[in-house]
């Protein structure tokens, strides 16, 4: 059996930047020469629906493109309600890392406090106000990077690899964008360590 392994479920709502997170983890995984498979959702669900991406990393070849039930080490969610949608995939030592800011586009969206309390019932949880942290950094669209930073300690990759992943993904948008997102990543990590 391999020594390095992470089964991650990235969750949120279409358009919240999950695929960007997946792209960065992908570049980092490549840098560390690990095996991986990452499945994602295209098409109809992207229109404001619940979306997820399964990311599986290991130092031995990965078979299934999907995380099996009860095998996720981490559910990283950019939206609180979406954290709970994939609970059956979480393993008993798995972590929930999520953004506390809701994305409300359905009429029967539950009370936010109830959602956060339900998340907090799970022993390994980390709830971060990523929207606020990103806003304070003047990078409103960077809350997905904040969450990735917060969750980084539960992913079997070096933090530096994630940083170089950001550089690679945002390179064509110029250095300023790279730096902004690096700041958001580090701010997320620091918020989690507090």
């Amino acid at each position: 059996m391999g020594m390095k392994k992470s089964n991650i479920i990235l969750s949120g709502v279409g358009g919240q930047g999950i695929l960007t997170i997946a792209g960065i983890i992908g570049m980092a995984t490549l840098k560390e020469k690990l095996y991986f498979k990452q499945s994602e959702v295209h098409g109809m669900s992207q229109r404001g629906g619940a979306v997820q991406s399964n990311f599986r990393i290991a130092d031995t070849p990965v078979a299934s493109d999907l995380v099996p039930l009860g095998q996720a080490d981490l559910i990283l969610s950019v939206e609180p309600l979406e954290t709970l949608r994939y609970l059956p995939f979480l393993n008993k030592n798995g972590w929930l890392v999520c953004n506390s800011s809701p994305f409300i586009n359905v009429p029967d969206y539950p009370e936010l406090e109830k959602i956060l309390n339900t998340i907090a019932e799970w022993p390994n949880h980390l709830i971060i106000d990523a929207d606020k942290i990103a806003k304070d950094l003047g990078n409103r669209r960077g809350s997905n990077m904040v969450i990735l930073g917060a969750a980084s300690q539960y992913i079997c990759l070096d933090f530096e690899s994630l940083e170089s992943g950001i550089s690679a993904i945002f390179e064509r948008k110029g250095d300023a964008v790279v730096q902004q997102n690096l700041l958001a990543l580090r701010a997320g990590r620091d918020a989690a360590l507090k």
């Binding site: 229109r47 039930l69 095998q71 059956p88 393993n91 359905v106 969206y109 109830k114």
Partner: peptide, 20 residues
């Protein structure tokens, strides 16, 4: 045997795709 994780809590609601 299948290793089910925790159940989806009752407060969960659907979030179907929608027109932007």
């Amino acid at each position: 045997e299948v290793h089910n994780g925790p159940e989806i809590p009752e407060i969960m609601v659907n979030r179907p795709p929608a027109l932007c």
